[in-house]
Amino acid sequence: MTTTLHPPAPAVLITHDAVPVVAATLAAAFDNDPIFTWVAPDPALRRAGLPGWFAVAAAGLERHGRSWQSAACSAAALWVPPSTEPLSEAEGVLLGEATAPLGAGAMERSGVISAAMEAVHPQEPHHYLWLLGVSPDQQGAGLGTGLLAQYLTQLDSAGEAAYLEATSPQNRRLYERHGFEVTGVIQAENSPPLWAMWREPRGIDG
């Protein structure tokens, strides 16, 4: 059955200069996300600390040249190409340091859930969607769908697979509409579940 996707929103590659704005967009998008809420349960510390955390993440992934933002940076998608580590060792250290301001226990919880994700990360070549977020005031306008469809169209043309972890049932349903299939449930200690999702490339007729 062919799935009809929204037309891609106008998008541009994220540059280093755009990282602060991208970080602010992603921090707002993930403020109430189940996983980030579990890692950093204090709302005030989470709100204050997430922009710095996302700034480190966005700066590290920007260098891969696969991170996109919509017009006015109301949405952003950070991709990692095949056979590539998302962050260098030094960037990983910086991300850990940026996790500490999220509150007591945040580094430990982040480490636990990250280890659980890495344990089931597929070895087959794939493009990895590390993060996709939309500003709360723009959610429902198709911006995230547009960014996702744009990249997946390229992967279909190249015959390449994609992988991600959905952090909520709502996100899981979005990705299922775009051809991703759940391959497993990831959970660490008392964390909310994440859904490991894989997508084979589609033919030109869907």
Rank of each mutant, 00 (worst) to 15 (best):
L87F: 15
L102A: 00
A59K: 05
G49R: 05
T99N: 07
E160K: 14
A196S: 09
A11Y: 04
E176D: 14
W79M: 11
G140Q: 06
V39K: 02
Y175A: 13
R199I: 04
L164T: 11
S168L: 11
Q123K: 03
G142V: 11
H178P: 13
V120I: 03
I35R: 03
R47K: 07
G105Y: 06
S83H: 12
P101M: 04
G179C: 13
S74T: 08
D31S: 12
E200W: 02
G96P: 03
P43V: 07
E200S: 12
L102E: 01
E118H: 04
D33W: 07
S88T: 15
H126P: 01
F54V: 11
A72L: 03
G92C: 06
D156F: 11
R66G: 01
Y163L: 05
P136C: 13
E200L: 10
F180E: 08
R46S: 08
L194Y: 02
T84D: 15
G142L: 09
R66T: 14
L132W: 06
Y163G: 11
E189T: 02
R46G: 05
A188Q: 00
T153R: 14
W53R: 13
G96V: 05
W79R: 01
T4H: 12
G144C: 09
V22E: 05
T3E: 15
A40C: 03
H64C: 12
Q139S: 13
E108S: 02
A72H: 15
A119P: 00
T84K: 05
A100L: 15
A28F: 06
A48R: 15
A188I: 02
L194S: 07
L61I: 09
G206S: 11
V185P: 00
G203E: 09
S168T: 15
E118D: 13
I113F: 06
S88D: 06
V80L: 10
L148S: 11
A11H: 15
H121G: 00
T2L: 15
P136G: 08
M197W: 03
H126Y: 03
I204V: 03
G179F: 06
V185W: 00
Y175I: 11
A44Q: 12
H121V: 00
T167A: 15
Q187L: 00
L174C: 12
S67V: 05
W130Y: 14
P192D: 07
S110I: 00
V80N: 01
G52M: 14
